[in-house]
Design a protein around this nucleic acid. Sequence first.
DNA 1: CTTTTGTAGTTCGAAATCGCACCAATGGAG
DNA 2: CTCCATTGGTGCGATTTCGAACTACAAAAG
Lengths: 166, 166
Amino acid sequence: MARTLLKAPGGDWKTRSCMRDTDPSVFFEVFNEIGIIEQLSRAILEARLPHGLIAPHFAVLNHLVRVSDGRTPMEIARAFQVPKTTMTHTLKGLEQHGLVEMRPNPEDGRSKRVWLTDTGREVRAGTIAALGPDFMKLAQDFDVSRLSDIRPVLTELREYLDAARD
Amino acid sequence: MARTLLKAPGGDWKTRSCMRDTDPSVFFEVFNEIGIIEQLSRAILEARLPHGLIAPHFAVLNHLVRVSDGRTPMEIARAFQVPKTTMTHTLKGLEQHGLVEMRPNPEDGRSKRVWLTDTGREVRAGTIAALGPDFMKLAQDFDVSRLSDIRPVLTELREYLDAARD
DNA sequence: CTTTTGTAGTTCGAAATCGCACCAATGGAG
DNA sequence: CTCCATTGGTGCGATTTCGAACTACAAAAG
């Protein structure tokens, strides 16, 4: 259940007469909508992914394309803010599917480096291509400029929350 | 790994000269930010939750307060768009913690109805209260009006994706 | 009324997340 | 150089998600 937060605790706070305090219901609403959208968009992605691959696999593939491969597992884990054990498991799945290759790191005997295979690049590109029609349909029915408008706010919110986590 | 999508497949599409086609990178960017924010906000919530409870538990508690309790498990599962087996498991956890009570449905021998206990209501209210300082801090550092501005767009996007899933 | 079809909920098994403990290698303090 | 705190990675176990199969009941069809 990805939708973590909730519709609106609302009443508890909205009925307060002193509005100098911040009304938190907008936070609940925004975080709730974000939770639902995350769940739905993940379902869309996974519907286009080859059988046996899930969103985290694709996220890693895409990350390695964006910021060239050869990253260490810990670098990737930090980029996604997941525990290293989770990344070990995700990379094992990618390796078993022949999408990445893990070699020892010549500069540090403790770590490894993750390299994309040709198959891995093809799967990533193919998935993006397969998503094309979904995005086209979304663009037809939904004003894309409104998404462009909210993106900076989302980015700023993400950066704030990211920096604020202890 | 909640951050499902990704920063930007970007180049693959942006370099196209024909801009009559929609540039999908904005979708990737928005969905990626949303994925990260979902993960971070879930962590904030779970940090304030009593030990043993996770976000889905709270989401159900809150749902039952918002739309009075006495719902059936299937009604709740549909509201959150999770498989019924997942809801069975979540409700079992809530019941073991004494936060909800499940009774047979007198109107339908197949189903049950879920009722909040006093403890359940207290835990929900206490968690919201515990989140207060977090929200206050966020409100200090972040312009709340910008969140209010994006909320309608998020709601519309959520409604569209919700309706579009087959 | 009997049969068929559909729905609510659980059980079970597979896969995923993640904390804990562990080992190997690093690198700074003395 | 030696000690030792730190870091990268893995194995293990507990918990969560979720599809498939199953039971019990309900509702529609005959």
